[in-house]
Structure formats: C-alpha cells, structure tokens
Design a protein around this nucleic acid. Sequence first.
RNA 1: GCGAGCAUAGCCAAGUGGUCGAAGGCGCCUGUCUGUGGCACAGGAGAUCACGGGUUCGAAUCCCGUUGCUCGCCCCA
Length: 419
Amino acid sequence: MPTFQSPRGTTDRLPAEQKYWRYIEGKAMDVARRFGYGRIDSPMFEDAGLFIRGVGEGTDIVEKEMYVFEDRGGDMLTLRAEGTAPVCRAYLQHGMSNQPQPVRMYYICPVFRYERPQAGRFRQHHQFGIEAIGDPDPSVDAEVIELAWTFMHDIGLSDMTLVTNSIGDPECRPEYIRSLKSYYEKRQAHLCQDCKTRLERNPLRLLDCKVETCRALGEEAPKSTECLCNDCDSHWNRVQSYLDAMGIANRIDHRLVRGLDYYTRTVFEIQPAVEGAQSTLLGGGRYDGLIEQLGGRPTPGIGFGSGIERLALNVQRAEVDVPDEPSPQYLIATIGEEARVAGVRLANRMRAVGVGAILANGGRALRGQMRQANALAVSGVLILGQDEVRDGTVMVRDMSTSSQEALTIEDFLNNVAVE
RNA sequence: GCGAGCAUAGCCAAGUGGUCGAAGGCGCCUGUCUGUGGCACAGGAGAUCACGGGUUCGAAUCCCGUUGCUCGCCCCA
C-alpha cells in the first residue's frame, strides 16, 4: 500500500481510459454546437450561500453532501455541488438578461459531493449539462429534452428510456402535496420506516420509494399531472405534443420527482433499459423560480445534467465502438552516442514541423528498441546508426509492412511535413 | 448516516496452521538473434502476504482492532 492514495471517492483517469472521455466530451460539444449552446466554465468553488439558496436547505445535497470550507479571508466557500446554480449566478452577474432570450449555455465540469462511493457514484464526478435561461415557452422544454435524447444516441446509447413528468408550480403544487399527504396518511400503517419520515419532511419523495409495498401504494397515489393548474396543464400538454411531433417517445411516470427544490413543471430523466443502482444517466427539469431565488428578476429556465462517469460505464457496457487515441507516429532508434545526438536533433526538427516523434530508450540494443516500437504501436521507426550518421540519412521503416528505405534527413522531413 | 463482502508483486491470481526463504499467468527487462519488432524458447527483476495487536513451538492462513476498497440502502449524475 503506497503512502498516499487518491482521496476516497476520487479516481485517476489513466491514459488508457481517456478515449472514452474524449469521445463523450467530443459528442457533447458537437451536439451543443448544433443546438446553438455556448460553453460556460464557472469556478470550481462558489459562495456557500449560492447552493443553500439555490438547491434548497432541506435537500440532502445541502444538508450533508457539500464540501464547505472557510478560506483564509474568512469567506464560506463550497466546492461546486451542482451545475445549475453557478450558471444562473453567472447569468445574473453578467447581465445576460440583456441578451436575446433564452441564453443557451453548456458546461463540462467536475462536481463534488460528500457521499459514500459505490458503483457509478463518486465524491468527485463530472457532468455535462446545459441550461436555457429566459424563455418560459414549452418548445424550449422540448428542445432541451430533444438535445438530451440526441446526445444519448450520438454517444451510442440507444437502448434508453426517457421518463417525464410535471410537478406543477407554486400555484398548484401545495394543493397537490396536500392531497398526496392525506392519501398516504390514511395508509401510514403500510409504509416503510423511511417513508414515514418522508411523509413529514418531503412528501413528493414518497412516490419513488423502492420498497415493494410502498411502490404499490405509489402506483395508486394521486398524480401531479391530474392536479395541475391551468397554466401548468397547458404547458405540460404542449411539451408532450412537441415531443410527439419529433417522434421522441417518452414514458410519463407520475412517480418521477427530483431531489432539488428548484424544479417546477417539467422534469425528466434518461435511464438505461436494464434497471440497476445509480441508473439515472441524465436528469433535469424546469426551474422557473430559481433565478428569483438567487436575487434576480423572475426568470424562467430549464436544463439538465448528466454524469460522465456513468455515461462512460454504459458506453463500455454497450460495447460502443469508440475510436482509439492516436498512437505515436514515429519512434527514433539510435545506435551509439553519435547517433544519439543525431536522434535528438531529428526528433526536435520533426516536432517542429508537427510530426510526432519519441526517442527510444537508447541504452537498449536495436532489437530492444524495435520491441519498444512494437509495444508502443508506432506506425514507423527511424533508425540512426553509424552508416546513417556518416551519410546524413535515416532508415525509415514502416511497421505495418515491414519495409524500409534509406532517405536523406532532408527528404524525410520534407515528405512527412507534407502528409 | 445504516448494512454486507473483500484485502497476496503494476494487473489477474494459487495458497485455509509447519513442506511459503509465497505457485502460476499477464505485463516489464535481458538473451537465443554482434544493426531490426510481432511468434517461440531460456533467464531476470519485482511482495514488509493492507496495517497494528493477540493466540500458537510455528500465522498469508485462526481471533480482535484499525485503515482501505467494493457492493447495497439513503440520496443523486
């Protein structure tokens, strides 16, 4: 056991895993571009109050999962616990309400939560997320969901389920929660221990309990979509009709609720067809009250976040064909000290014209250097020995065809630079 | 915060009280092949058997504690 290990719940992303990240991030950036979303990078830490106000005091994230610390100046800061609140803060801070609405932004960044790590769950994880701020229209809901769905397909995860629901707004939700509570209070005897506390603290959460008896009760429970006020109801119906028009199938699940206080109206998740723990790959919804909560004028918004670690896991499980990272182009093998100098110089000139070159371990016999070339999967080897140094040439060996020819250094450089 | 399992070289792993001064495989290095890779063969390096304590004549192996990891619950991405 080494003296130091990466902190609990964090991982080193080793070179061998990079291709999955490069792939997913590349697809994310491309889909964002096609939908007109611009990148935003916000700080890794924020005023702790931002998350407390934004995400909600009663939520698990705020109550027991945030990394909060006081800096040397006495400010209370917190490691980014979530993606949406910082973007909304930036929207306000930079006066983005003066730009054409909605303002469309995406981010790819680490998120920190103090949790017990397990499969697909970490203390530092990474999210790709988008936000569309400043437009209440249901077509924006449909656009955000379309983007999410397109993204999943683009990275090769087609066997997914899109789940949607509407949880109303401050006008109709209190009424709904009242009827939900009274439904469950009458059946309290059948509830699991956790649900008995949920009844008091967070009644919406009763709906997505996984205990079998609670599930059964949840099936029959009052549905939020049946208690929507007129505005929420028409919004919800229009979102559904736009999704229909695009042929995006979704399962309406009245038990879908989400754990952050700021959600209003549309909420959605994307899950793999095979059920399992930590199955949510992407989750989001509308947050029409959040900006106001953060001190701005009432401003609607909607977005989603998706966990890149979970996406990468599923991409690997689905055996998606992910392109390999490019292997080094050339390895320079040298024999003797004189050739070593020539090799160093050749590598330097190649890199200057944009060609990848690495110097073989010169202490090894040529045979060993060739083995190294093979292990590194380079496409070509450049051999420099006494003869080559004397003639000003280099032996250029193509590793796939095993053919080689002697070229002058100048000819070689001219040829590779053109490629 | 709660529950369960696991911990032997970089990786996979045999070993359940003495024959372990720890097998085997992958990977790494060297040689067979004095300047030419992939295959094969031979050799080599690499392990305080997670840590601490206990039981025993004797512990990788049994017991206790600690730490770490993994999985589940909660919650979330």
